[in-house]
Design a protein around this nucleic acid. Structure first.
Length: 815
DNA sequence: AGCACGCCGACT
DNA sequence: GTCGGCGTGCTC
């Protein structure tokens, strides 16, 4: 095996061929990290993806510089997984690598060099550059590649290093090269001499002049005698602000106490008690048995359980079973922030064998989890989509909770993959069972499960037989006609809210639009405030008193007069959540009304604070965007109101109705969790709309049947497979031409009815980039692979055109 | 993705 | 006369 295919952290297609130097041949293995030169001077950490003996024909392969791992950092299952991802989602391996690895595990030219110990350098036979480098190393011991540029020409650096490595004079210092350092934590203890001398009284007498120091000394002494085995964290002493570090320092100066350091995992592990789980209900028990059966047949499971049906209970049971069989569990969530409950329960049960992995961790924390996973120290990992890429050793179960959530398929992240579908594939590679769970499964998953591709399990009762909430539709048109409205609220709705809070219960009001008003419009000349970077109107945020663009984030102050005609008739159109909040506060002036949306939750701990406020029942009404549909499991919420439900439906997206259904159902699940008297009020101008009617009936099979019929009628997934290609460029004419061209190539290979567009994206310009899109509707089944090969062919043909290389191209498979 | 090379406008 | 803008081409 003389050649290796290496993946580099670059947005380039495929992998690169490198020669494996003879001395590395015995040690190199698939899934190891290696250091390789690339382009004139750069050095990258690559991944060994294949080993073979086929010498490249069109170029001379460079050599691998060194191995960074003793054993593969990536298990074979992950290699298969990456291959699948790149083929299925038409994305580069480099993109996957960039996304999957924490940056400290893929260092670039920051790598350090050092002299080998005890060497005799034969300066006679060195060239100038080599001499410079050796001399520099003699002075500085360690030197990184960027520093070398100061005295050796860029193009000669690699050559010089290689030659010195060949001569066995220098080596790559991996310990330093690894950016990651385990964090040291300060601990304190009473100086041992003090303890052995037994002259405590004397010491305390001396300390009488410094009462704070004396108290601190006594505190440490007490902690240490009570639990001699538990080390005392230094930080703990200063927690309540009673002692300061100066007090400790004085004690240390008197040699009474000392501090010492220990390596500590950055991620705090739970050290409290471990809780047992409650027994399952009959319905849950039978669901669990069905899961067992499905797994025996190597089938994955869609667990469709109405809100509060206790899906979590079943998860916990399966997790426990899996772990006691010596296997590990991956628990995926759409976003980690809103998952307090499940985390708490798992923490109580699995303590330090529980790990977390999500976008909010620092790079060091990520590496820590990588290590622990690799050492098989974590039995259950709770994480978001990027947790799919950890180097699991023996995964036995993957749970994808809230599987319908669109956070599993975020548009912003490259590579564009769907974490839910990928989890099913990853489970396959590991031979692990996968459970998709949701109260409102995606239409696609439902279809798949009903088609017997997955096992479908339905939990129809709330745990403890609590009744499901009751739905009521309020006809806003009628209310308006009979003058029974106040602003956006019908009198009926106001009455119900009043009743709820008068009974000391809490109400939730959902309005899924940020800001105060959607548009600021001039009544005199019709001027509308557009974002200067994007083709969207700017939203008025009253709380911050500014205009915001929700696409590029640009902010501007609110114009006082119309910039065009200077009239003062600027009117706010399109109701936002801030306005609803303001209205509710005015309707119930003596009640506590809080707002919950991304704008009000931006401050640190804002979410936690509001959470506690609701929990302590200080809040009477919470007004919020879709954020309130997640994680707010409180006992005293009895009412959910959706004053402008129609706005949920009027979105240009074939999934709009499905989303509306999911959002309404999810937020409804917050009501009457304990009492069973939950009530949902939906205000609409179209009470006869099928979606509202079906929600009111609460006939779940019928709802999904409706969705599926609609999808079939208009040839949308799951009956077809969609691929969306988006092209972006600063110049309209250029993207326009490019997308016309790509469209024509696609039409050459695909049937006419499969190619829609190109056309301007819904938002024609974001951040000064004009965007066009082409939508491909491909048949599913056997032919799909054939068609997709044609798409790939077209894309490659397009890439050949050099003039279009500056065009940004995004491909969304399963859009 | 980065980086070098190369060709045209505003500056000491 | 040069600095620096970004269009184009290439990387195992």
């Amino acid at each position: 095996m003389q050649y290796a295919q290496i993946i580099l952290p670059l947005n380039l297609k495929g992998s690169f061929t490198y020669k494996v130097p003879d001395e590395l041949i015995p040690d190199i293995q698939l899934g190891m990290r290696v250091l390789v030169p690339f382009g004139g001077k750069k050095i990258y950490t690559g991944i060994v993806f294949d080993l073979h003996d086929n010498a490249p024909e069109n170029f001379v392969a460079k050599e691998v510089i060194s191995l960074l791992d003793d054993s593969p950092i990536m298990p074979p299952e992950q290699i298969d997984f990456w291959n699948w991802l790149s083929e299925y989602y038409l994305c580069g391996l480099g993109e996957i690598y960039r996304f999957a690895f924490p940056s400290s595990l893929k260092l670039e030219s920051e790598t350090y060099l050092k002299l080998k110990p005890n060497i005799q350098v034969d300066f006679e036979n060195l060239d100038v550059n080599e001499m410079y480098l050796i001399q520099a190393l003699e002075v500085r011991q360690l030197i990184n590649l960027t520093d070398i540029e100061a005295f050796i020409a860029k193009k000669d650096i690699i050559k010089t290093i290689n030659s010195l490595i060949d001569l066995q004079y220098i080596e790559i210092d991996e310990k330093i090269a690894e950016k990651y350092r385990a964090k040291e934590v300060a601990y304190v203890k009473i100086n041992e001499e003090v303890l052995s001398n037994q002259n405590l009284t004397e010491i305390l007498l001396k300390l009488n002049k410094a009462p704070k120091q004396k108290d601190l000394f006594l505190l440490i002494l007490e902690m240490q005698t009570e639990k001699p085995d538990v080390p005392i964290k230094k930080a703990v002493l200063f927690e309540d602000g009673f002692f300061g570090s100066s007090h400790f320092k004085s004690l240390a100066d008197k040699n009474l106490v000392e501090e010492y350091y220990m390596q500590k995992d950055r991620i705090e592990s739970y050290e409290g008690e471990i809780e047992e789980i409650e027994e399952l209900s009959e319905e849950q028990k039978s669901a669990k048995l069905e899961i067992d059966e499905a797994f025996e047949e190597n089938k994955n499971v869609l667990l469709h359980g109405v809100t509060s049906s206790g899906k979590t209970h079943i998860y916990l049971e399966k997790i426990e079973e899996c772990i006691s069989n010596g296997k590990n569990v991956l628990f995926l969530l759409p976003e980690i922030a809103l998952t307090k409950q499940i985390t708490q329960r798992l923490e109580k049960k699995y303590g330090r064998h529980l790990g977390f992995y999500h976008q909010k961790l620092t790079d060091f924390e990520r590496v820590e989890v990588w290590r622990r996973i690799k050492q098989n120290d974590i039995k259950i990992l709770v994480g978001t989509k990027n947790a799919l890429f950890l180097p699991y050793q023996n995964l036995g179960l993957i749970i994808v909770d809230e599987e319908h959530d669109s956070a599993y398929r975020p548009r912003e992240i490259t590579p564009h993959f769907n974490a839910k579908d990928s989890a099913l594939i990853l489970g396959g590679f590991y031979g692990a069972g996968v459970i998709l769970g949701s109260a409102t499964p995606s239409v696609e998953s439902y279809f798949r499960a009903r088609k017997d591709k997955m096992k479908y399990i339905f939990l129809n009762e709330r745990f403890g037989n609590v009744k499901l909430p009751e739905y009521e539709l309020i006809n806003l048109k009628e209310a308006q006609d009979s003058k029974k409205v106040s602003g956006n609220f019908s009198l009926r709705l106001i009455e119900e809210i009043k009743k709820t809070i008068d009974e000391k219960n809490q109400a939730i009001i959902l309005h899924n639009r940020r800001g105060y008003s959607n548009v600021l419009e001039c009544e005199s000349c019709g001027y509308v405030n557009y974002c200067s970077n994007c083709d969207v109107v700017m939203t008025y945020h009253k709380a911050a008193n500014e205009m915001k663009c929700h696409y590029c984030g640009q902010r501007a102050s609110r114009p006082r007069t119309c910039p065009k005609c200077h009239s003062e008739n600027l009117n706010e159109k399109g109701v936002g959540v801030e306005q609803i909040h303001e209205e509710v506060s005015k309707l119930f002036p003596d009640k506590e009304v809080d707002r919950m949306d991304v704008d009000s939750m931006r401050k640190k701990f804002a979410y936690e604070k509001l959470y506690e406020k609701i929990e302590d029942r200080e809040t009477d009404i919470v007004v919020g965007t879709q954020m309130i549909s997640k994680g707010l499991d409180f006992d005293h919420i009895e009412l959910v109101a959706i004053p402008k439900a129609d706005s949920l439906l009027y979105v240009q997206d074939f999934r709009a109705e499905e989303r509306a259904y999911q959002l309404i159902t999810q937020v409804s699940g917050r009501a009457g969790r304990v009492s069973g008297n939950g009530k949902i009020l939906i205000q609409t101008f179209n009470p006869d709309h099928s979606v509202f009617q079906l929600i009111k009936m609460n006939n779940i099979p019928k709802i999904y049947k409706y969705f599926l019929t609609e999808r079939q009628k208009f040839h949308y997934p799951p009956f077809t497979k969609l691929i969306m290609i988006e092209l972006k460029h600063r110049r309209v004419d250029k993207v326009n031409r490019a997308s016309q061209f790509l469209g024509s190539i696609l039409r050459k290979y695909l049937p006419e009815e499969c190619v829609l567009g190109p056309e301007k994206s819904q938002i024609a310009r974001i951040n000064n980039f004009y965007q066009f899109q082409i939508l491909l509707k491909l048949p599913r089944g056997k032919n799909y692979e054939k068609f997709k090969a044609m798409v790939l062919l077209s894309l490659n043909e397009f890439d050949e055109i050099t003039a279009y290389q500056s065009i940004k191209k995004d491909v969304f498979v399963d859009f």
